[in-house]
């Protein structure tokens, strides 16, 4: 009789254990399915991107072929449109578009330690700009200074030099591009915002429907380089 009693306890415990195992089996199975789905959606996205790239390249190929034809027929003229494209590519024009407005300001708190850690540095601006460019920003400016291929962001004592001009906190970084992508490029876990926020640096990101990024105003001086036009024409 007593042994029978134990058997019931054992059975009940086994039943409980069995239920837990069953539920765990469900959990593991569901996780596997969800990771497979994730892989699938990633591949779909990659395929879509590759297709878009292919279509764009095809179109470019067509325009280049027509340009060759124009060359051959001797009717080629560099159009104003092309010039305008190159100017905007070089950052010499004011551009407007949807994008983000990022503001950075020095920390108002000081929890001890190095006072310098609570200030916005040139490196911080550089990493923000770099993330924005990596996320496909089409035009970027810092406190009205357009960031172009020749731009430098350097530290000069208590201020920051951008394009050789002094800028100081609060910094306002404007970027034209896909606002959602730009925002998430800065906000992802372990990203720029995460690395600056422990120091209390005030960083805000606003999505804007119309951001106006100014033109590059510095006179680009080319003293030491010679453009090899002949080589390019070949």
């Amino acid at each position: 009789m007593k042994k029978h009693h134990y058997s019931i306890a054992l059975t009940m415990i086994c039943l409980l254990l069995g239920i837990i195992i069953g539920v765990q089996y469900n959990t593991v199975k569901k996780q596997r399915i969800s990771t497979e789905n994730q892989r699938l959606s990633e591949l779909t996205l990659a395929l879509k991107q590759a297709q878009e790239e292919r279509d764009a390249l095809k179109q470019k190929n067509e325009t280049l072929e027509s340009t060759i034809k124009e060359y051959q027929e001797g009717t080629y003229h560099s159009s104003d449109q092309e010039l305008e494209q190159l100017r905007s590519f070089a950052g010499l024009t004011v551009v407007t578009g949807s994008g983000v407005c990022v503001t950075l300001n020095d920390s108002s708190t000081n929890n001890g330690g190095d006072r310098n850690a609570y200030l916005v540095h040139a490196e911080d601006l550089l990493s923000v700009v770099n993330e924005l460019n990596a996320a496909g920003a089409e035009a970027v400016s810092i406190n009205g200074q357009r960031y172009v291929g020749k731009s430098a962001i350097s530290c000069a004592g208590s201020i920051v030099m951008v394009n050789g001009m002094r800028v100081a906190a609060p910094f306002e970084i404007l970027a034209v591009g896909d606002a959602d992508v730009l925002q998430s490029a800065l906000k992802f876990p372990g990203g720029v915002v995460d690395s600056l926020s422990p120091w209390g640096i005030e960083i805000t990101i606003h999505k804007e429907t119309a951001v106006t990024v100014p033109a590059y105003t510095q006179t680009a001086l080319f003293k030491d380089l010679a453009i090899n036009i002949a080589e390019e024409e070949e």
């Binding site: 195992i21 069953g22 089996y25």
Partner: peptide, 25 residues
């Protein structure tokens, strides 16, 4: 009896639509 209980339990667990929160797996 214990083995029958275990099998019955596994059946009930899989049969139910319950899942554990992913972090506790």
């Amino acid at each position: 009896l214990a083995i029958i209980g275990l099998i019955l339990g596994i059946g009930m667990g899989i049969g139910s639509a319950i899942v554990f929160p992913p972090g506790y797996s």
